[in-house]
Design a protein around this nucleic acid. Structure first.
Lengths: 228, 228
DNA sequence: GAAATCCTTTCATTCACTGTAAGTGGCCTG
DNA sequence: CAGGCCACTTACAGTGAATGAAAGGATTTC
């Protein structure tokens, strides 16, 4: 059953939404504590967030932005502010849908299921700034192409993507690829790294793997090679 | 530059839309010949379709459905019919967005770019009613899982998905898998079909492959086995 | 019940992925 | 400049998954 988090300060409206969605078969979680909403949502990690914009004290926009930056949770904005400017801003911040109150329940349900369907099966996808990696199959999506990476290359790239542009130690790579740091064969890692480099270069990825002498490696943007 | 196809019968409206989108940096293709619209769109394969619903003679719904069945081209429905029923139907058929005329150009542009962003890098994905198939790698997404199909099974499933629930002849399958209908080894196809069946069953797909005696096969919903 | 059609299992071959091994190239230090 | 260290590259053989061939069994149709 899909879980939906509702962020709405008015009790009546919240309960009505909750009731509608529950009858449609969703599991609801109402967020009533309006401090650290984004944090609450991230640790809850629901399948969808229903977000009101005009909350007291805090900005709905900020919540939307934070969720979108730190996760891939879909956000449906539902608000009484029927301002084009708000809509544009919400969409720009990454909101997946923008509906205005009052809203017929059929429309709400249709849009909710539409957004959910859109995200179906994407829970294993890891988003990088210039690519998308499927963590189950190690299928890499980049530049309108898709390629299946060999398992070892996939595991290595996964670690790099999880680290952003920070350095990754060799130990972490050993753990990720072979599940242990014992009986280390530096060369085996080296060979697999070389192969991954070649793969990424062939795909014309905007970033490349560079060594951090004595430590490990980093995945950084090609232009920024000189910095830091 | 992203290409957008406009399906709209009223000349004035068509030209206005075209102008707005061109100024925003899109390459526009106006569809004025209203026969075989779906075919035209499929062979054109734009990055997005802007679709009017109330066209003369033909049904916008049908066009939407056909495009969605046979491709992963995003469809933005823009219509003057402000009926909740139409909206629900359009969304159900797979439309990615539903806007009503009149529509502020900022809103239109925001929604267009929103939809396009959503599809970034997904141009090779083939959408079935209960699954998603990557046509390059034959990675199958279903029930929040992803699996890499062996090439032959992938090619066969691709043909089935393109045909919806219509029957597929063996010749088509031979063409798709081996690129020829000469030197046919019925058995080779048979074995691969068996393997695909087992794969789909293991993934608990809602549909299954059934034989059409003397003709070929169909991919149909498990419950509907008796019908038709 | 016979013929046609459809299905299943097993097996050898092929090909991509992998780790091993051996050798090359660059960088720092004395 | 010489030596040592670290990083890189390439070639090769073993392993395992995918494939088509083959043979035999099961179902449908008349």
């Amino acid at each position: 059953m899909k879980q939906i988090a509702i962020v709405e300060d008015e009790v009546l409206m919240r309960e009505e939404l909750s009731s509608i969605l529950q009858k449609a078969g969703y599991h609801i979680c109402e967020i009533s504590e309006l401090r650290n909403v984004a944090e609450q949502l991230l640790s809850l990690s629901p399948d969808l967030v229903l977000l009101d914009l005009n909350l007291p004290e805090i900005s709905g926009f900020g919540i939307c932005q934070e969720i979108k930056q730190k996760s891939a949770i879909p956000v449906l904005v539902l608000t009484s502010r029927d301002q084009l400017r708000d809509e544009l801003r919400a969409l720009d911040l990454g909101a997946d849908e923008y509906l205005t109150k009052p809203c017929r329940k059929e429309r709400l349900l249709a849009r909710v299921s539409n957004v959910l369907k859109r995200y179906e099966g994407r829970s294993n996808l890891l988003e990088g700034p210039d690519c998308l990696l499927d963590r189950l199959t190690y299928t890499l999506y980049i530049h309108n192409q898709s390629v299946i990476l060999p398992k070892n290359q996939g595991k290595i790239l996964e670690v790099f993507l999880l680290h952003g542009d920070q350095a990754v130690s060799k130990e972490e790579l050993f753990l990720a690829v072979w599940g242990t740091t014992e009986y280390i064969d530096e060369n085996a890692l080296q060979v697999n790294l070389t192969r991954l480099k070649k793969t990424l270069a062939n795909l014309q990825m905007d970033r490349q793997i560079v060594p951090v002498r004595g430590i490990g490696y980093r995945l950084i943007s090609k232009e920024a090679k000189c910095e830091t």
